[in-house]
Amino acid sequence: MSFLRSTAIALTAAVALTGQALAADITIRLAHLNPEDPTQSHSGAMAAVFKSLVEANSNGAIEVQLFPNGQLGKDNEVIDQVRTGVVESTISSSGGLAQHYPLVGVFDIPFAFPNIGVATRVIDKDSEFGKKFVADLESKTELKVLGLLDSGGFFAFTNSKAPITSVEDMEGLKIRTMTLPTHEAIISSLGGKPTPLPWAEVYTALQTGVADGQMNPVPIIAFAKFDEVQKYLSITNHVITPYVWTINSDFYDGLAPEYQTLINWAAEVATDAGRSASRVIEASDKGLPALAAKMEVNVVTPEEQAKFAEAAQPAVRALIEEQYGAEGIEMLDALLGSIEKQNNF
Rank of each mutant, 00 (worst) to 15 (best):
T12Q: 14
G19C: 03
L22S: 14
I26L: 11
T27F: 05
A31F: 00
A31S: 14
A31R: 00
N34S: 09
P35V: 01
P35N: 02
Q40T: 01
H42K: 05
H42W: 01
M46S: 11
F50M: 15
V54I: 13
V54S: 11
S58D: 08
G60H: 08
E63M: 08
P68A: 01
N69C: 06
D75T: 02
N76C: 04
E77D: 11
T84G: 03
I91N: 07
S93I: 04
G95Y: 00
G95Q: 02
Y101S: 05
P102V: 00
G105K: 01
N115P: 07
R121H: 11
V122S: 04
S127Q: 10
F129P: 05
G130P: 05
K131C: 04
L137V: 01
E142R: 03
S151Q: 09
G152K: 01
F157E: 11
M170F: 14
G172A: 10
K174L: 11
S188G: 12
P194M: 06
W199Q: 12
W199F: 11
Q207W: 05
T208V: 10
M215K: 09
N216S: 13
A222R: 08
K225L: 08
V229W: 04
Q230K: 07
L233N: 08
I235S: 06
I235E: 09
V239Q: 03
I247G: 04
L255T: 04
E258T: 10
Q260K: 15
T261A: 15
G274A: 08
S284T: 01
L288D: 10
P289L: 02
K294T: 13
E296K: 12
V299Q: 10
V300A: 04
P302G: 05
E304N: 09
Y324T: 00
E327A: 07
E327D: 14
G328I: 02
I329M: 13
M331A: 09
D333F: 00
A334D: 08
L335M: 06
Q342L: 03
N343K: 11
N344Q: 12
